[in-house]
Design a protein around this nucleic acid. Structure first.
Lengths: 226, 226
DNA sequence: TCAAAAGTGTTAGATTTACACCCATGA
DNA sequence: TCATGGGTGTAAATCTAACACTTTTGA
């Protein structure tokens, strides 16, 4: 139903920007760095890249993320397209934003230093380049919605985690405190959160049971619901 | 934080596609038409258009929608960007999809005939051009989420409506039946749905009270919540 | 021995669901 | 007079929220 032809129209540059969320010191953090090019050199900014001719938007985001973190197959969600005419002070660039969740411990310090990136606490986020603050706002809103319905909290933790850690993730994402007993009750009902025999002795003297996410159980459970 | 320069990268065509939802015969319907250009001439398709250099994505969607319906300031939401490499069989075109809600009665038949459009029931939607079915799926999912938290149902109705009409909108969007008494109880709690003195005699012999959406009351109420 | 985190159930309140009959009117 | 859609309340069930003490162990 487009009524006019390609050639009558102009093309635009298209980029992806990735909001990388991590969880550290019981806080939700975002990976940002100083822009190393004009316009906006030196400003705090999300990490992004241009979309190539031969890759989809998702692939471009995936590539950008991998380049930055060295990690593959991370949890990633599109946030939406940002397209004010003058959002980029240089040229017209429309950007599609994504958010990704990573386990901070998997992230190589080498890469962090190479790109000069920092984990910034969400509640003390500085002014970011262009409309990047808006993107982060939108990302956190979508993530809050998501975490209530889908098991994404694990993505911010190591494969084995304690229930207290898991609770802290929820608290950081939702930005409010939860009742420990009610939280554990809810988790127990989720068969895809599996207790292991292992004990974590790092965070407490007594030791805490380690749990893991059982993806297979999750898929079966959610298929069953349909 | 983009590490490379504009000029090293290629540009792409960018379009917007609009999913226009209407409510008719107690069903949620989508406005679609037959593509009038190659590639895909004759296939059922959403209506879309290219994004111009001097307009934002939202403006492009607004313009497209207005061109098609003659209506301004409709409720509209972005769904997201669709960017598979070969989603358009002709050239590489990335498209940002939006959905809009309109009151079918406001929509001019002249324009409908001019563009050869039809209201198609959502549960009998034919195969659409390119990835347009996916867009519609995504749109309905987002709309279901939205209608639970924000007063958007009105947008599909005339300014004055009966509670039964409103209930039918919810039922059509959520795709399940609701209990009449429970529904009315919930509506009564929303102070921004205002009873008027007017009576609708069209849909029943007895007549039904007409209600309207009070935007001011809504804004006050939602400010109060913060 | 004590500080620090882990683990564990019950009860009250709020919310949600199910359900059936009378009313007013035009045909 | 009767068929049609409009309008109304209550009780049971479910879900949510609040709340405090015992356990283990390393320092």
């Amino acid at each position: 139903m487009q009524l006019t032809y390609y050639s009558e129209h102009s093309k635009v540059w298209l980029s992806v920007d990735v909001i990388i969320f991590g969880f550290e010191e019981n806080k939700l953090k975002v990976l940002i760095g100083r822009r190393q090019m004009d316009p906006g050199r030196g400003e705090w900014s999300l990490y992004g890249g241009f979309v190539n001719e031969d890759e989809s938007l998702d692939e471009a985001a995936e590539r950008t993320l991998q380049q930055l973190t060295g990690l593959k197959r991370l949890y990633m969600q599109q946030i939406g397209a940002f397209g004010s005419v003058d959002r980029d002070p240089g040229e017209r660039v429309v950007s599609v934003a994504y958010y990704a969740l990573i386990n901070v411990k998997d992230y190589s310090e080498k890469l962090q230093h190479k790109y000069g990136l920092e984990w910034m606490s969400l509640d003390a986020l500085p002014h970011l380049y262009s409309d990047h603050n808006k993107m982060v706002q939108q990302a956190i809103r979508m993530m809050r919605q998501k975490i209530k319905n889908e098991p994404i909290s694990f993505q911010l933790l190591p494969p084995l985690f304690t229930l207290t850690q898991l609770q802290h993730v929820f608290e950081a994402v939702l930005n409010n405190e939860l009742d420990k007993r009610n939280f554990r009750k809810r988790i127990k009902e989720m068969d895809y959160i599996e207790k292991t025999d292992l004990i974590d002795k790092e965070s407490s003297k007594r030791g805490a049971c380690l749990y893991r996410f059982n993806k297979k159980a999750y898929n079966e459970e959610s298929n069953f619901k349909l």
